[in-house]
């Protein structure tokens, strides 16, 4: 554990909590991609199956359970409790175009050809692109609520901090995981355009809206 890893995990946690609170407080999931949230629930489910097979630390177990629980709670709020506010007409990204290639890649490029390891690899690849339906929704509507942009910022910062964590671990522990690193770089790059808009607009008190 180093400071980048811890800060990354906390940023990830903050993102998840911000989204849950936004939906709960406003009683609305307008502007949120249910598809991205289903993908994240799938990511956590396939990655944290090792909760059942190996114990790493209390911290590790606690965070995994919280992430999974929050992911399903978010999906529940979007598709059940506040279904009437769900922006289905704009949430039209074809997720099969992500899940199928990512599934195929997980079979082909993995550390070990075993069910748990393939599912872990699948989750890493899928996480790197799971935000695309959300970004697609924002590009379609041309705007995002400020609280939604805070969510996205925390979520993007999380993986960026993990990149520093991996640099740290490579130098000080000789540890590296090429699959996680490559996917993490891809994931972070996908947020760059958004980071730019966040800094130039949201941080200056303006609403995030895209030119038509």
């Amino acid at each position: 554990m180093n400071i980048f890893r811890l800060a990354g995990d906390l940023s990830h946690l903050a993102a998840i909590i911000i989204l849950l609170l936004k939906i709960w407080k406003t009683r609305s999931c307008a502007g949120i991609s249910g598809k991205s949230q289903i993908l994240f629930a799938l990511v956590f489910t396939t990655r944290y199956l090792d909760l059942l097979t190996s114990f790493i630390s209390l911290y590790n177990t606690f965070m995994k359970v919280v992430y999974i629980g929050c992911a399903y709670a978010t999906v529940y709020l979007i598709y059940m409790k506040f279904k009437a506010t769900y922006d289905g007409n704009h949430d039209t990204f074809r997720v099969e175009f992500l899940v199928v290639p990512v599934g195929g890649l997980a079979f082909l490029v993995n550390h070990d050809f075993s069910p748990l390891e393939i599912l872990w690899t699948f989750s890493i690849y899928l996480e790197s692109v799971a935000i695309l339906p959300q970004l697609f929704l924002i590009s379609k509507t041309g705007e995002a609520e400020t609280i939604t942009t805070h969510y996205l910022f925390c979520l993007g910062v999380y993986r960026a901090l993990y990149l520093f964590n991996w640099i740290w671990r490579f130098y000080f522990e000789g540890f590296f995981d090429m699959i996680a690193i490559v996917a993490g770089v891809v994931q972070t790059i996908l947020y760059c355009d958004f980071f730019y808009l966040y800094v130039t607009k949201v941080l200056k008190g303006k609403k995030l809206s895209l030119p038509a």
Partner: peptide
């Protein structure tokens, strides 16, 4: 190296 022996990250 012991590349990704156990996945200790989240």
């Amino acid at each position: 190296a012991d590349e990704a022996a156990a996945h200790d990250e989240l």
